[in-house]
Design a protein around this nucleic acid. Structure first.
Lengths: 217, 217
DNA sequence: CCAGTATACTTGTCTGACAATTACTGATCT
DNA sequence: AGATCAGTAATTGTCAGACAAGTATACTGG
C-alpha cells in the first residue's frame, strides 16, 4: 500500500506552482499577483498568499512588502553564486565520500537515467541530472545539508526552464563526466573528484551563461 | 539618515519570537499554539499563524499538518548534524579564504568581542562567537551560502539557549582557537585552518552534548 | 487494565471587509 | 514637448468571524 502524503491546500498549490515554474509556463520577470493565483486555482486569496510566501522563502519568487511577487530573472551574478555554492557544498561532500570510498548506488542509477533521457529532450535531462548530484549529497545522510542542496537544485531547475535549452546540452559529455567523478570517489581520490566536479559545474555554468547572454538582448 | 526597515506585523512577531527562543524564555519541548501567539501580541490568529510558519520554515519550530507547533528539543542526532554541516560549510570557506590569504576584518573584531563578552556570562558569548564564524562565511560574498550558514547559526543559538550554559564555556580557549584559525588562514595554510576549525567545532559540540545528556534525565 | 467512544481543543480554509501602500494615469506648469 | 505632481485604480497587509476537519484527552464500558 502506497504511502499517501496528506497535504494542505496551500502545499498542493505551491507544489503545482513549482512545477509550472520549472516547466517554463511561468516566464522569468512575470508578475504573479495573489488574485491571479487565487483565480487560477479557485481558492481564497489568503490561501494563495500563503503558497506564494512559501515559494518566496525558497527563493523561487521575489517579493518585498506590499509589492507584487515576481518570477526572478536569473542574471549572471545569481548564476555564478548558485554554481559557486553548489561547488562548495558538493565538493566537500565528494571529499567525504572519497574518504569512505563510498559510491552511492542512487547516483549510478541516476546517471543511467541521464543517458536514457537524452533521447527525449534537454529539459528531460535536467531531472535525472539533478537527481545524480542530489544523490551524492544525500549519501552523507545529513538532513540539513540535503535540504540546502535541494534548494539550490530548485534554483537550477528555474534557470534551465528560463534558458529553455535548445540542444545545447551534450548528454554523452555530461554522463561521462558524472562517471568520471564516481570513479575517482571509488578509488579514494578526493582531490581528483573535487577537480572533476569543479570542471563539470564550471562547464555547465558557462554554457548557461553564454546561452543567457545571447538571448538577453 | 538611517536606513529604516519597513517590516510587516508578521515579520515583527516572528523576530520577537526568535529572540524569545534564543533567550530561553520559550523552553524546548513546549507547545506554541496559534492562539497563544495571537493572544500574547494581541493580533489576529492568521497573523500569528504566518509568523509561526516562518519559523517552521527556518527549522526553529517543528510542526506537521493539523498539529500544534512545538519548540524542538535538540537531541544528539540533531546536534551532530548541525555541527557536521557547520564543518562542511565553514571548512570549505576556510579553504577558499586561505587560498586568498584573506582574513576578514569583521572576524577579528568579533573575536575581540568574544573576550569582552566573556566577563558578562555564557549566553553573552554566543552572539560574538557566532558573529565570528558568520564573518568567515560572509567574506566569500555569497548570498546563498551566507543564508544557509545563518540558518545553522540560528539553530546553534537555540541549542545554547536550551543548555543555558552554566560556566562551561572557556572564553580564553575559544578566543585562542579562533585566533589560531585566523593565523593559519593568513599564512595560506588551508588544511591547517580546516583542521583547527574541525577541532574547534568538535570541542564545542562535545561540550554541548555532554551538558545536554547530563541534564536530560 | 485496555479498548473504544465522546468531547474539547486546535488547525485549515473561507468570506468579506477595510486600511495602507504601490503603480498608473492624466493634468498642469515650465 | 517633457517633467512634475495629484488623484485614481490595483494590490497587498491585516483583521473579524465562521465552519469544517483533524488531533488529543477524558471518560465509559468491558
Amino acid at each position: 500500500m502506497p504511502r499517501l502524503a496528506v497535504v494542505s491546500m496551500v502545499d498542493a498549490v505551491s507544489d503545482d506552482l513549482r512545477q509550472r515554474l520549472f516547466g517554463g509556463e511561468l516566464r522569468g520577470g512575470a508578475m504573479l499577483t495573489e488574485a491571479d493565483v487565487a483565480g487560477h486555482y479557485d481558492i481564497a486569496r489568503p490561501t494563495a498568499k500563503a503558497a506564494i510566501e512559501q515559494l518566496v522563502a525558497e527563493g523561487l519568487l521575489d517579493r518585498s512588502v506590499h509589492k507584487t511577487a515576481r518570477i526572478p530573472v536569473l542574471d549572471a551574478r545569481s548564476i555564478r553564486d548558485i554554481y559557486d555554492t553548489r561547488s562548495h557544498l558538493e565538493g566537500e561532500a565528494l571529499r567525504r565520500l572519497a574518504a569512505l570510498r563510498l559510491v552511492p548506488e542512487a547516483a549510478r542509477a541516476a546517471n543511467a537515467d541521464v543517458v536514457l533521457a537524452g533521447a527525449l529532450g534537454d529539459l528531460e535531462i535536467v531531472e535525472p541530472d539533478m537527481r545524480f548530484h542530489l544523490a551524492l549529497v544525500d549519501a552523507l545522510r545529513s538532513p540539513r545539508l540535503s535540504r540546502m542542496y535541494g534548494s539550490l537544485v530548485n534554483e537550477v531547475k528555474l534557470c534551465m526552464a528560463q534558458v529553455q535549452g535548445r540542444g545545447l546540452l551534450s548528454v554523452d559529455l555530461i554522463a561521462s563526466e558524472h562517471a568520471n567523478i564516481l570513479d575517482r570517489v571509488a578509488s579514494g581520490d578526493a582531490s581528483g573528484a573535487v577537480e572533476a566536479l569543479h570542471a563539470h559545474l564550471e562547464h555547465a555554468r558557462d554554457l548557461l551563461m553564454t546561452t543567457l547572454s545571447s538571448q538577453q538582448p
